[in-house]
Design a protein around this nucleic acid. Structure first.
Length: 306
DNA sequence: AATGCTGCCAACCGCGCGCCA
DNA sequence: GTGGCGCGCGGTTGGCAGCAT
C-alpha cells in the first residue's frame, strides 16, 4: 500500500502555532467540527497540514484538556498503567481524562522514568527536579508568570480582537515561519481547561489540578486567550462542563470510572459529544455555555462570548 | 554579567491500521 | 482482493527558560 504523503508540504507552515492560528482552528472546529482533518486546514484557511491541526487540537486546544502538574496519584496511575501497557501512551491517556498522550509521554520521559531508575524519589514532588520545582512554586506564590508568557498574554489579547470578526482572513503570518520562538511577535499560547485524550469525550476535574497546577504556565496560557483566568479554578470548568452535560441526556453521559484508579484523580467522563461526532449546534452550545459562564465571572470575557 | 548546561515541552516525523471504493 | 486515503500513535527533536558556574 502506498502511503499518501502527510500533506503537501509546499507552502505549509511549520513550527509553533500563533494565537491567530489557534483562534482560527478553534473557531472552525467550533462551527464545523473536525470530520476531515486533511481538508480542515484548507477549509479553515490555515497554512498547516491536517496532521498538524489535529495535533494542535488534541494536544492543546481542546476545551477539556487538563493542564498542570501531574498529581502523585496520576503519576502512580501512569506508572502502573505503563507496567501493564508499555509505551501505549494513548491507552494510558485514555485512563487519565484531561491528559494527552503527548503530555503523559513527556512526563514519563522527564520524571517518571528517572524516578523508577532512582527509587529514592518517591512522590511527584520529588519526581520533578528540585530546581524546576522551586522555580515553579516561586512563580505561583508570587502570582506571577514567566516573562515569555506575560508577553504572550498581551499579544494574545491583542490578537483576540481582530480574530473575532473574521475567522479566516488573518493567516498572514506565513512570514513567521522560521522565526525563533522567542522573537516576540505573537507567540503560541493555549487555553487550559481540562479533558481527556481520546476523542475529547471525557472531562476531568480534579481539584488536585488546581492545587498542583497553580503552575504559572497553565494559568497564564489561559490568560493568553481570555484574559486573566487566575480566578478560575477547576471547579469552574467542571461547572461549565456540568452544564453541558446536563443538557445531554442520561446514560451515555454517565461518568465512566475505572475501578483501578483512585477516585480523586479519576475520571469522570461526561461524554461531551465533541469533535467528530458533534454537530455544529452542540458545539456551539458548549462554547456558548463556556463563554457566557466565563463572562459572568470575568467581565473581559464577555467580549468573546458575544 | 556572561556563558554554559540541563530540563522541559510543543511540535514534527514516519509508520501502522482501518475504512472505503 | 487490492489500493488509496486519512487518522492515530509512538518516537524524536528543536529550542526556550532558568539555574549553575
Amino acid at each position: 500500500m502506498g502511503r499518501a504523503p502527510c500533506c503537501d508540504k509546499m507552502g505549509l507552515k511549520k513550527g509553533p502555532w500563533t494565537p491567530d492560528e489557534d483562534q482560527i482552528l478553534i473557531n472552525y472546529i467550533r462551527l464545523h467540527g473536525h470530520s476531515n482533518w486533511r481538508a480542515l486546514p484548507k477549509l479553515a484557511g490555515l497554512l498547516r497540514c491536517g496532521k498538524s491541526c489535529r495535533l494542535r487540537w488534541t494536544n492543546y486546544l481542546r476545551p477539556d484538556i487538563k493542564r498542570g502538574n501531574f498529581t502523585p496519584e496520576e503519576e502512580e496511575t501512569i506508572i502502573k498503567l505503563h507496567e501493564m501497557l508499555g509505551n501505549r501512551w494513548s491507552a494510558i491517556a485514555g485512563k487519565l481524562p484531561g491528559r494527552t498522550d503527548n503530555e503523559i509521554k513527556n512526563v514519563w520521559h522527564t520524571h517518571l522514568k528517572k524516578r523508577l531508575l532512582n527509587p529514592d524519589q518517591t512522590s511527584s514532588g520529588s519526581a520533578e527536579p528540585a530546581r524546576k520545582r522551586a522555580r515553579k512554586s516561586m512563580a505561583s506564590e508570587k502570582g506571577e508568570a514567566p516573562k515569555k508568557l506575560e508577553t504572550e498574554h498581551l499579544n494574545c489579547m491583542e490578537s483576540q480582537d481582530h480574530n473575532n470578526n473574521n475567522d479566516n482572513d488573518n493567516i498572514n503570518d506565513d512570514e513567521d515561519s522560521g522565526r525563533p520562538r522567542n522573537q516576540v511577535k505573537i507567540e503560541p499560547v493555549s487555553p487550559q481547561p481540562c479533558v481527556s485524550t481520546s476523542e475529547m469525550s471525557s472531562v476531568t476535574s480534579t481539584s488536585s489540578t488546581s492545587a498542583s497546577k497553580n503552575d504559572s504556565r497553565g494559568k497564564d496560557m489561559m490568560g493568553g486567550y481570555f484574559g486573566d483566568f487566575s480566578d478560575i479554578n477547576d471547579d469552574f470548568w467542571m461547572e461549565v462542563l456540568a452544564i453541558e452535560d446536563t443538557a445531554m441526556s442520561s446514560e451515555e453521559h454517565l461518568p465512566r470510572c475505572d475501578p483501578n484508579i483512585s477516585s480523586d484523580h479519576l475520571m469522570i467522563e461526561p461524554v461531551l459529544k465533541f469533535g467528530s461526532e458533534v454537530d455544529g449546534d452542540e458545539m456551539d452550545f458548549f462554547w456558548h455555555n463556556l463563554l457566557t459562564r466565563t463572562s459572568n465571572e470575568l467581565p473581559e470575557f464577555s467580549e468573546i462570548a458575544l
